[in-house]
């Protein structure tokens, strides 16, 4: 097993025992089942008591006259689907970032996507008084995407292209700049603060199928790119020189990987606001079970990330009944301790 997978620049230990291929293949449908089960649980839970039969009927045999069916179809199903999609996208984006930068601490936040999205939304609320989730999503996607391009551009300048150190520093500097501007707006404009403070926590409540439909094409392209690039990222993870020696066009692979990350993380932040920790923790958990081959890491991250976020959302609704804790809070409350346990267990140095 990858004993040192959390150590910087040592993602690939010399002797790695991968689980047998048959086990890896078998694991995928099991994880898919877990995801579907989690989504069903999410749909069944809620303020209104709805029994399992009605839930099933509402999904397979929808009757618009029935209030319970309406609750399921317009409130709970979009919520579960959003959580699953966002969790999958964030986990895959995090896995690619970690492979791309060979830094186990990398996550989509490193490219400044969350800081950029937050700044764009807060700025738009301040200037244009926008107030619908759909408009937030547009600004969040644009802001996050532009910031990521700026960070990647700055981090790739100079010979040698994008090195992990340059990317990290560029991301930190640009994020700090944007965050302080965001704070300044919220300090001096109470209306904006009031308006955005719930969005800024990250939540999957109140999203509808129309919003999901707008996001879906980008998600599909991003996830598709990630699945296709798995083999190349595994090679890239051995180091630029080795990858080049093996005949890889590293520049193109890095560029396409970055595009996938921007699409996935951008759509996530557009759908659910800035949600931390999924992109950081899930790939580590996945790597622990499936080894270092990104052809397996990507699909497993997708399924386990989705399951994790759906469950976080369910738990957030259960622990604080009758109100709820936003999923952005829950990922940190649950993911934080898991991460610490993982570190204590695995980082031997």
């Amino acid at each position: 097993m990858a004993t040192s997978s959390i150590l910087p620049n040592r993602q690939v230990p010399p002797a790695t025992r991968l689980p047998p291929r048959s086990l890896l293949v078998l694991g995928l449908p099991i994880c898919l089942g877990a995801l579907l089960l989690a989504m069903l649980t999410s749909i069944a839970f809620g303020a209104a008591e709805i029994n399992a039969t009605t839930v099933w009927q509402a999904i397979v045999n929808f009757n618009p006259e029935n209030t319970n069916h309406l609750i399921i179809q317009t409130l709970r199903m979009p919520r579960a689907v959003t959580a699953a999609l966002v969790g999958a996208a964030l986990a895959v984006a995090g896995a690619i970032m970690q492979g791309l930068t060979r830094n186990p601490l990398a996550d989509p936040g490193l490219l400044g996507i969350e800081a950029g999205a937050a700044f764009a939304v807060v700025g738009a609320v301040f200037l244009f008084q926008i107030n619908s989730l759909g408009t937030y999503a547009v600004f969040a996607f644009a802001g996050g995407g532009l910031t990521a391009i700026a960070v990647y551009g700055l981090g790739s300048a100079g010979h040698g292209g994008p090195t992990p150190l340059k990317l990290t520093l560029a991301g930190a500097a640009i994020s700090a700049l944007l965050s302080s501007l965001t704070t300044a707006i919220m300090l001096f404009n109470q209306r904006t603060l009031e308006e955005v403070r719930f969005w800024l926590v990250g939540s999957v409540a109140g999203r509808d199928f129309a919003l999901i439909g707008q996001a879906l094409p980008y998600l599909v392209i991003g996830l598709g790119l990630a699945l296709v690039l798995g083999r190349q990222i595994t090679t890239l993870n051995l180091g630029d020189d080795i990858a080049k020696g093996l005949g890889q066009s590293t520049v193109w692979i890095k560029t396409f990987s970055a595009i996938a990350v921007v699409l996935l993380a951008g759509v996530s932040v557009a759908l659910a606001g800035p949600i931390g920790f999924v992109g950081l923790v899930i790939p580590h958990v996945v790597r622990f079970f499936v080894g270092v081959d990104y052809r397996w890491i990507v699909p497993y991250s997708m399924l386990i990330g989705g399951t994790f976020l759906v469950l976080c959302d369910v738990i957030g609704r259960v622990v604080a009944r009758p109100s709820e804790l936003a999923v952005g809070v829950m990922t940190a409350l649950i993911g934080g301790p898991v991460f610490i346990a993982l570190v204590r267990w695995k980082v031997k140095r």
């Binding site: 601490l105 009031e194 403070r197 926590v201 931390g276 804790l325 570190v343 204590r344």
Partner: peptide, 27 residues
């Protein structure tokens, strides 16, 4: 390295606690 990583994990948990407090109070 363990210090950094544990620090990140704990900071996230504390940040979440802080967010919960801030979400439940007046502006």
């Amino acid at each position: 390295i363990r210090l950094i990583l544990v620090g990140i994990g704990l900071a996230a948990v504390l940040g979440a606690a802080q967010t919960i407090l801030l979400l439940r109070t007046d502006i």
